[in-house]
Amino acid sequence: MTHSTTRPVVSVVRSQPSQDGDGVKIKRIHDFGGGIDPFLMIDELGSDRPDDYIGGFPPHPHRGIQTLTYVIHGGLTHEDHLGHSSTINAGDAQWMHTGRGIVHSEMPLTDHHGLHAFQLWLSLAAKDKLSEATYRDVRAQEMPHLQGNGATLIALGGEWHSLEPQHQVAGPLDALAGDGSIAHVILQQNGRLLLEQTAPMLAVYVFTGELDIGEQRVSAGHLARLGEGEQLALSSHDGAQALIIAGTPHQEPIAHYGPFVMNTHEELEQALNDYRSGNLTG
């Protein structure tokens, strides 16, 4: 008889203050060395001071990645060279497969809480780096929930299976690079959540309160990477919120410069030359 094992925390990384776009202040986790492969970066935008984010992200290019933007409070308006124009508000998400190239902008909106949102980057596999660019909105009502024991899991993408009570849902984003999965977890006071989760890469970014991940307590603004096992155990004494990310690493080399993520320096130089010559989007 075999016994399921709870996945341990193997490392904890603190987010770092940074700035992007037109002076937007963010908290950033970035790892282009494969530690959270297929994910590359988590940016948290959160402020009740409009000067911290109102400049937004004017038109800029991307190649070789997917981006996933998820709004907690406020909103963002997206426009791109393909003609997409839409606004996401609290609870909504937008997914962009940049492929060969896309030029887009994201401009912030506020509600009475200000703005609080996330943008995650995923690296595309080498075979998909020059694929066709696509875009999709996902509304809050499209995202299924797991609930029980003072916990709520909102599934943005991938399959999620709770063990207490037994229930399974699949998020609407089913084409995330590297079989990627992402969920938003909300734990009330003394809430707990036990998930079956065997993805090779599993990490939890805590953004509100303190979260007990297995035997280790992790505070807001930190990313915990999990080791091998079959189950993810989360609990919180006073309440917490977090993003869970999971996937299968590409295990491919990364060449990165600004908004471009390729596999070799030659491909990166080609992306820069294509952008300068107006050929990025093919």
Results as ranks from 00 to 15, higher is better:
Asp51Tyr: 10
Gly74Pro: 10
Pro61Leu: 08
Val71Asp: 04
Pro61Lys: 12
Gly46Phe: 01
Ile65Trp: 15
Pro58Arg: 03
Gly64Glu: 03
Leu40Asn: 05
Gly55Asp: 02
Ile36Glu: 08
Gly35Arg: 14
Gly74Arg: 05
Gly64Ile: 10
Phe32Thr: 12
Leu45Lys: 00
Gly35Gln: 11
Ile42Ala: 01
Asp31Gln: 07
Ile36Asn: 05
Ile36His: 04
Leu45Ala: 02
Gly33Leu: 02
Asp43Tyr: 03
His73Val: 02
Asp31Met: 02
Met41Phe: 10
Asp31Ile: 00
Leu68Tyr: 14
Thr69Trp: 03
Gly64Ser: 03
Gly46Arg: 05
Phe32Asp: 06
Val71Gln: 09
Pro38Arg: 01
Thr67Gln: 04
Val71Thr: 12
Asp43Ser: 05
Ser47Asp: 07
Ile36Tyr: 13
Tyr53Lys: 07
Gly56Val: 06
Gly46Thr: 08
Ile65Asp: 09
Pro38Val: 06
Arg49Tyr: 10
Asp37Ile: 04
His73Ala: 03
Gly75Glu: 01
His73Tyr: 10
Asp51Gln: 15
Gly75Thr: 07
Pro38Met: 07
Ile42Glu: 07
His60Arg: 14
His60Asn: 10
Tyr53Ile: 09
Tyr53Gly: 08
Ser47Ala: 04
Gln66Lys: 14
Ile54Pro: 00
Asp52His: 15
His60Glu: 05
Pro58Trp: 03
Ile54Glu: 13
His60Val: 12
Tyr53Val: 08
Met41Asn: 07
Gly34Met: 00
Val71Arg: 08
Thr67Pro: 05
Ile42Val: 13
Val71Ile: 15
Val71Cys: 04
Gly33Val: 00
Tyr70Phe: 10
Leu40Pro: 05
Phe32Glu: 03
Phe39Tyr: 14
Tyr53Asp: 01
Ile42Phe: 12
Gly74His: 09
Gly33Arg: 02
Asp48Lys: 10
Asp51Met: 14
Ser47Cys: 06
Asp37Thr: 04
Phe32Pro: 00
Ile54Gly: 00
Gly35Met: 05
Gln66Asn: 15
Gly75Gln: 07
Pro50Ala: 14
Pro59Glu: 14
Gly75Val: 00
Asp52Val: 15
Pro59Trp: 10
Gly55Ser: 06
Asp31Tyr: 05
Asp52Ile: 12
Arg63Lys: 02
Arg63Ser: 07
Asp37Tyr: 02
Arg49Asn: 11
Thr69His: 03
Gly56Asn: 14
Asp48Ile: 12
Phe57Glu: 03
Gly74Ile: 04
Tyr70Val: 09
Gly35Thr: 06
Val71Leu: 05
Thr67Glu: 03
Tyr53His: 11
Arg49Thr: 09
Glu44Pro: 12
Tyr70Lys: 01
Gly35Glu: 09
Gly75Ala: 03
Ile65Phe: 15
Asp43Trp: 09
Pro59Asn: 13
